[in-house]
């Protein structure tokens, strides 16, 4: 036994640090082999990597590192290098001094600014929701365990106030003990193909976007709540202006950029307070190429997101299967959320 103190706790495998380190070494690939597959210079790669480790250990400063490698990297990668965002000027606590950062040949600019630019120019004139997909969700009820993780993930992602929950899991028990079954039906906004909420809004504040998602323009909504009356799925919530201030410090400091609009802090008398809110399929994440928070989080992998218009997509295949159904099919709303029974 190589355990440091020689003591073993019952039930705990006695494994020492050396064994762990050995496991790591066994798993790591040989850098030389790895880099051989790439076009770039292997020696340069290894040298930079070794130096990077020394920076991490504190044996070398960030400034020295870049002074040593900037020219070689520029020579090796050319324009690709010069156009990458400068990793050193990201935040206030950067590891490289400003002079060193500015002397580097790659574009001076933080990752953030570059990311923001690429989003802005990403889909041209169309703006949010202009994509030619038709976003759809398929929820496999056989896989849903009713853990409510999606509900929590949604609240965290969209920072919804008390009383507003874009996603809920409807849970029902059937039968009598001990012969009981339980059905869990997670329910976001269905992003209906024929949405009654859109039909009734007197100011067209809620409307269908090209990508199939039903948007609410919080700057236009007058808060008449007609849409809540019209929605057959109870998917809409009124924002009464409540906050989690007692539970979380500075709960309203950040809001989610729903429908691609960044509204800054949550403040009294500022939209979306006094407006009606609902699930947006996490449009802001979709636009970044990410899945909605609930889909990403789902522990049972029950939720799937994709383009229903693309016949090769997984969701299209699932929505087409004989297990697929929609909620309240006879309402004529034609939801873009499908369930698998």
């Amino acid at each position: 036994m190589s355990s440091a103190d020689g003591e073993t706790l019952p039930g705990v495998p006695s494994v020492g640090r050396d064994e762990f380190d050995a496991m790591v070494d066994a798993e790591t690939t040989d850098p030389r082999e790895e880099l051989a597959d790439v076009d770039a210079d292997t020696d340069l790669g290894i040298e930079m990597a070794e130096d990077a480790k020394r920076v991490a250990r504190g044996d070398l400063s960030g400034d020295e590192y870049w002074a040593k490698h900037d020219a070689a990297a520029a020579a090796e990668f050319g324009d690709d290098y010069r156009e990458t965002p400068n990793p050193a000027v990201d935040a206030g606590d950067q590891t490289v001094s400003t002079e060193a950062a500015e002397s580097m040949q790659c574009t001076v600019g933080s990752m953030d600014t570059v990311a923001a630019e690429s989003v802005g120019t990403g889909d041209g004139e169309g703006g949010i929701g202009a994509g030619d997909e038709k976003w759809g969700m398929v929820i496999d009820l056989q896989k849903c365990v009713g853990c409510d993780s999606c509900t929590v993930a949604c609240k965290a992602e969209n920072r919804t106030p008390p009383g507003v929950s874009y996603n809920v899991v409807m849970e029902e028990e059937h039968g009598e003990f001990p012969n009981t079954t339980r059905t869990n039906v997670p329910k976001p906004c269905m992003q209906c193909e024929n949405p009654p909420c859109v039909q009734v809004c007197p100011v067209s504040a809620t409307y269908k976007m090209d990508d199939g998602v039903v948007n609410i323009d919080y700057d236009r909504c007058i808060g008449c709540r007609y849409c809540m009356i019209a929605c057959p799925y109870g998917a809409r919530y009124f924002d009464f202006g409540e906050n989690y201030d007692d539970e979380v410090d500075e709960a309203g400091e950040i809001t989610s950029p729903e429908y691609g609009v960044d509204r800054g802090k949550r403040e009294e008398n500022k939209s979306p307070i006094g407006n009606v809110r609902k699930c947006s399929f996490c449009t802001h994440r979709l636009e970044r190429g990410e899945e909605p928070a609930c889909v990403e989080t789902c522990v049972g992998d029950a939720r799937n997101m994709g383009d229903l218009d693309d016949p090769d997509s997984e969701v299209a295949a699932m929505a087409d299967s004989s297990r697929a159904f929609q909620l309240k099919e006879d309402e004529g709303t034609d939801p873009n959320v499908y369930y698998l029974k």
């Binding site: 859109v198 039909q199 009734v200 809004c201 007197p202 100011v203 067209s204 504040a205 236009r220 909504c221 007058i222 808060g223 008449c224 709540r225 009124f238 924002d239 939209s271 006094g274 407006n275 009606v276």
Partner: peptide, 16 residues
């Protein structure tokens, strides 16, 4: 009854 009383004239600007 409007959640946003300040926008009461909006129905005369935007319609459905």
């Amino acid at each position: 009854d409007l959640g946003r009383m300040d926008r009461m004239y909006f129905p005369f600007i935007w319609r459905q």
